[in-house]
Design a binder for these strands. Sequence first.
DNA 1: CAGCTACTATGACGGCTGTCATAATCGGAT
DNA 2: ATCCGATTATGACAGCCGTCATAGTAGCTG
Lengths: 206, 206
Amino acid sequence: MTGPVRGSRERMVFSAAQLIRRDGVTATGMRDVVTHAQAPRGSLQHHFPGGKQQLVNEAVDWAGRYAAKRIARFLSEMPEPSPSLLFAAMVRQWTDEYQTTGFAGGCPVAAATVDCAHATDATRQAAAAAFAAWSRPVAQALTDMGVPAEQAGSLATLMISALEGAILIARAEQDVRALLTVARELGPLLDAASSDARRGSTGESH
Amino acid sequence: MTGPVRGSRERMVFSAAQLIRRDGVTATGMRDVVTHAQAPRGSLQHHFPGGKQQLVNEAVDWAGRYAAKRIARFLSEMPEPSPSLLFAAMVRQWTDEYQTTGFAGGCPVAAATVDCAHATDATRQAAAAAFAAWSRPVAQALTDMGVPAEQAGSLATLMISALEGAILIARAEQDVRALLTVARELGPLLDAASSDARRGSTGESH
DNA sequence: CAGCTACTATGACGGCTGTCATAATCGGAT
DNA sequence: ATCCGATTATGACAGCCGTCATAGTAGCTG
């Protein structure tokens, strides 16, 4: 709707995100991105005058927005949403990919953080923004399910932390075990936070 | 005890781990490692005939053994150990570093996984072994605290996953918030698993 | 002394990287 | 037809990378 052949520029950002999450930022060359996106090499300096940094930052931004949209989609597909079901859906996205496509890629935001957090501050900020964009709809969904507002943000951070860590372990082990484990162990805790609130209990832990 | 000036070889492995966790595997050059370790460049091909791959793999191995030793030390320093206190100690190691030294580095095993899991299978296996070496003493400690054996491994995976993810987020945000959050939110769940078991409860979980 | 092994020094090689300078092409609007 | 901005093509540049070939030194053993 905006571009002619669906924007070669957008294709490059998308391809960058895909290659980054597979090989890391430093190991991903601009020529690789151009090839993967089937885009003209000459367009690079026109669309991304800021060089590789700009391309990487936009890829990280895109990943953050993508993750946020997935949360919305998960919720819309859920007849009776609950915290544990949302987390299970987030995890299942990864187990599905790993079981069908293989363990080639991880999270592009994690890759950018590991590779650029120290060397390139702008990319570090982009990663922080991506985590925030991802976390916001999760926390909002938790409050909608009855989790007290001051705990929703914390649980969202916990969910994303556990998911990111499990992705790492699953990729290293080439086994979805870690992903299934965190979903199983964390589910009851998440649901307890929403049902406790629905019951109106304030002081707990006996 | 084995080397003359405490082994230039060991220094290179250690420096490799430090640089990898700061800049990532690909961005860390062998010349950088030699410089950082103040080691003779000519020793590289003698001590690491397998090239960069061998050096990286040994650095990952070292990191795994180091993490395992830290668990043992945490436990030995704890008068009355509990799952939540162990996890708090694991988290505090990172908040301490970040608050005193800055947010320069992350976990070297995570960096190796992100950077090499797809390209270099041997490094991926080294990362998996490091996670296993790290997880084993955690699970053992949990069983010693009364967590049922079949749940101890799962909780160890959950702890390491949440910690790794929180490290990522903390580094991106340059704020220890995520680390403090996972410690606070996960603590009660961990202690419940050990006290439940001590009470002898067997079947429920839904 | 020689001889052997462990370690170090040095320089070079091909290949890849991000970036840039320059020019060509294309699509509309005038 | 002419012009102009947006897009693309192409080639080159300096710099870094991991690796290797070769030679040298130190230290122990005979």
